[in-house]
Simulated assay, not measured.
Amino acid sequence: MNALTEPWPLTDEQRAVVQLCRDFARNEIRPRGRAVDEADVETPLDVWRKAAEVGITDFMLPGELGGGAFTDVFTQCLVQEELCFGDPGIGNLVCSNGFFADPVLALGTEEQQRRWLCPLVGPDAPMTALATTEPGAGSDAAAITTSARRTKGGYVLNGQKAWISNAGAARFYVVFAKTEPGERAKGVTAFLVSADAEGLSVGKPMRKMGQRAIVCREVFFSDVFVAEEDRLGAEGAGFVGLMRTFDISRVVLGAAAVGAARAAFEYARDYACVRVQFGKPVIEHQAVAFRLADMANRIEAARLLVLRAARAIDAGADVTGLAAMAKLTASETAMFCTWAGVQTLGGWGYSREYPMEQWMRDAKLEEIEEGTSDIMRLVISRHLP
């Protein structure tokens, strides 16, 4: 499969950033993948810094804020696929500031955008986090219980978040809380919070099956004061902003899943070409050849769906159903392809000496984060063409 295949024409600038990320994935990300997985709960700051130095951590930020100006979701998907081809966890990590930036760009004032996004530009870019999920509220974001009580000059936050990516390492958080505790979606409001805010604390690293480059922790808010000017948008507008963020993040994570699937396919294909069983290369056995054909077919279909959804977002269309389709298809493609890769390698696929078993564990997260596959099917059923 030629990774340079262009289902839509690319500009010279897009080709350049794709090539940059392809080289970075092969030279910096792939060689670190196994060690980061073995480390379990350590953020690979060395890779983060290298990514910041070449502009990968801020490529998605607007040019007027100092970023790389690739604000369109289509280009973000091209980049995400290449980086996650190197390693899904590290690839998602080095682009994670985009998930923080989306609600700030969607809901924030110009002053808020300058104050909170300009520091994310350059070789010393800090990490950020999006704090939505709670112990009792995962895919059902309207069910969050973290409260934001009005007080003089702002709000007081109390509550607990769970599975927050980059928590502990992040300098800034976008926090979703309820300004109207009795309401569901209408009560959700977004806030910008610094990690050093009094009353904010984090738990110990949560041990995960895969994508260990992204360390997750619980985040606790105990009477955390947030000034009025650090509220994002109007009271109750947070849920709409969050749903827009989900539309974008689901498509971008779909691209990440395509990258993981492509890595599994290429590794399995290359192995099958050189491994000899029963007197001939494994790829000449019909069962293996057909399995590789299924992998290639699903990857191409998933990529096209992801890029179609990205184009629709960039055109301003309502894409909630299409975004769910893209994420569902791509994430299940990644799970199938990593499983098929393990099958193709046989015992070596099951061995930790080879990357396939790690990629299979990494791929599972794509079927869970930003809405499980079951939730995606529910969303699709509610937005049928």
Results as ranks from 00 to 15, higher is better:
residue 5 T to M: 10
residue 7 P to M: 12
residue 8 W to F: 15
residue 8 W to Q: 09
residue 16 A to N: 13
residue 17 V to G: 07
residue 18 V to N: 01
residue 22 R to D: 15
residue 25 A to P: 02
residue 29 I to T: 08
residue 34 R to K: 05
residue 40 D to G: 04
residue 44 P to Q: 05
residue 46 D to S: 14
residue 47 V to I: 15
residue 52 A to P: 05
residue 54 V to C: 11
residue 57 T to Q: 02
residue 59 F to D: 06
residue 60 M to K: 03
residue 60 M to A: 15
residue 69 A to M: 06
residue 76 Q to K: 14
residue 76 Q to W: 12
residue 78 L to N: 07
residue 79 V to P: 02
residue 79 V to T: 06
residue 81 E to M: 06
residue 81 E to Y: 03
residue 81 E to F: 03
residue 81 E to R: 15
residue 94 V to W: 13
residue 97 N to G: 07
residue 97 N to H: 03
residue 101 A to T: 03
residue 101 A to L: 04
residue 102 D to F: 08
residue 103 P to K: 10
residue 106 A to Q: 04
residue 109 T to C: 12
residue 110 E to T: 12
residue 110 E to L: 10
residue 122 G to I: 12
residue 127 M to Y: 10
residue 128 T to V: 12
residue 133 T to N: 13
residue 133 T to S: 13
residue 135 P to D: 11
residue 140 D to C: 07
residue 144 I to F: 10
residue 145 T to K: 05
residue 146 T to D: 03
residue 147 S to M: 11
residue 152 K to G: 07
residue 157 L to G: 06
residue 158 N to R: 14
residue 165 S to I: 08
residue 165 S to L: 09
residue 170 A to G: 03
residue 172 F to H: 14
residue 172 F to D: 14
residue 174 V to W: 06
residue 175 V to Y: 00
residue 175 V to R: 00
residue 180 E to R: 06
residue 181 P to V: 13
residue 181 P to I: 13
residue 181 P to H: 07
residue 185 A to F: 04
residue 188 V to L: 10
residue 189 T to W: 08
residue 192 L to K: 06
residue 195 A to R: 11
residue 200 L to E: 07
residue 201 S to H: 01
residue 207 R to F: 08
residue 216 C to H: 13
residue 217 R to G: 10
residue 221 F to H: 00
residue 224 V to P: 00
residue 226 V to L: 07
residue 231 R to D: 11
residue 235 E to C: 12
residue 236 G to P: 01
residue 237 A to I: 09
residue 237 A to G: 15
residue 239 F to R: 00
residue 240 V to E: 15
residue 242 L to C: 06
residue 245 T to K: 09
residue 250 R to K: 04
residue 250 R to S: 13
residue 254 G to E: 12
residue 262 R to I: 01
residue 263 A to I: 00
residue 268 A to P: 02
residue 270 D to N: 06
residue 270 D to Y: 03
residue 272 A to H: 08
residue 277 Q to I: 14
residue 284 E to Y: 13
residue 285 H to Q: 13
residue 288 V to T: 15
residue 290 F to Y: 08
residue 294 D to G: 04
residue 294 D to P: 01
residue 294 D to S: 10
residue 305 L to K: 15
residue 310 A to K: 01
residue 314 D to S: 13
residue 325 M to L: 10
residue 326 A to I: 08
residue 329 T to C: 10
residue 330 A to V: 03
residue 330 A to L: 07
residue 330 A to E: 09
residue 333 T to P: 03
residue 333 T to E: 11
residue 336 F to W: 01
residue 341 G to V: 09
residue 347 G to V: 12
residue 348 W to P: 00
residue 351 S to G: 04
residue 356 M to W: 09
residue 358 Q to F: 05
residue 359 W to G: 00
residue 361 R to L: 13
residue 365 L to H: 12
residue 366 E to D: 12
residue 366 E to Y: 15
residue 371 G to H: 06
residue 378 L to H: 02
residue 381 S to K: 14
residue 383 H to C: 14
